[in-house]
Amino acid sequence: MELRLSKVGHSYAGREVLRGIDLEVPQGQIVCIVGPSGCGKSTLLRMMGGLEVPAQGDVLQVGYPPEGCLNPLTFIFQDFALLPWRSVAGNVSLVLEDHPIGRAERREMVADVLARTRLTEFADALPRQLSGGMKQRVAIARALVVRPAVMLMDEPLSALDSQTRELLMDDLVNLWIRQPFTAVYVTHNLAEAVRLGHRIFVLSRRPGELREVIQLDKPLAERGYGDAELEVQQKHLWDLMRAEAAAADAELVGG
């Protein structure tokens, strides 16, 4: 299943936030969206996930979700969005409970996904007992368990410290290598974008328009921390964004 956006535009209370976005999310690839603060990245992602309706243009889902997919468009949130009153296993199991799955099979699915995200020994822990990185791993496990067609991630690592961020990026890369998934990854962090993205869409400041599309052909498995080739790409991205970011920063909020 692929996602296709055509001429998507949106305004909040007469203020244009997005304008004429054409974008494609090919199957089995990670698409990164970068852009200055307030340019409408989160809005765009919410539209892709059906949590908001664009004022102009269409968000299309092309083809059918794969067999056994329980929730085709699945979010991973910046602030984890875990239920504090449920254990790790309970949080994962929550999203299966509305589907006609037997109790035993559900437990098996939860156990399997916790093993894949290396959380097995924390299955009974409550969210408040976990570090930020662990919480996000639980959220990733919860997203994986519904076998999504497209994962929609809104700055999933930006609430974490930089070491944890590196570790979790490795986790995501490994998960992808073992079983390629389709994802849209919104981020502020250009290092994340060049590390995880097969394709990077650069948005301008508000109203967000597509500035440039960068294709990265180096396989994810071969990209590493401090990769010189990636640094060049990252520098190029920063040059693109620098002026926009500065201008966006100088704008009055709500102006």
Binding site: N71, F75, A81, V95
Partner: peptide, 8 residues
């Protein structure tokens, strides 16, 4: 929002 996004 999370609940809605998972189709609960």
């Amino acid at each position: 929002r999370m609940g809605q996004s998972f189709g609960l």
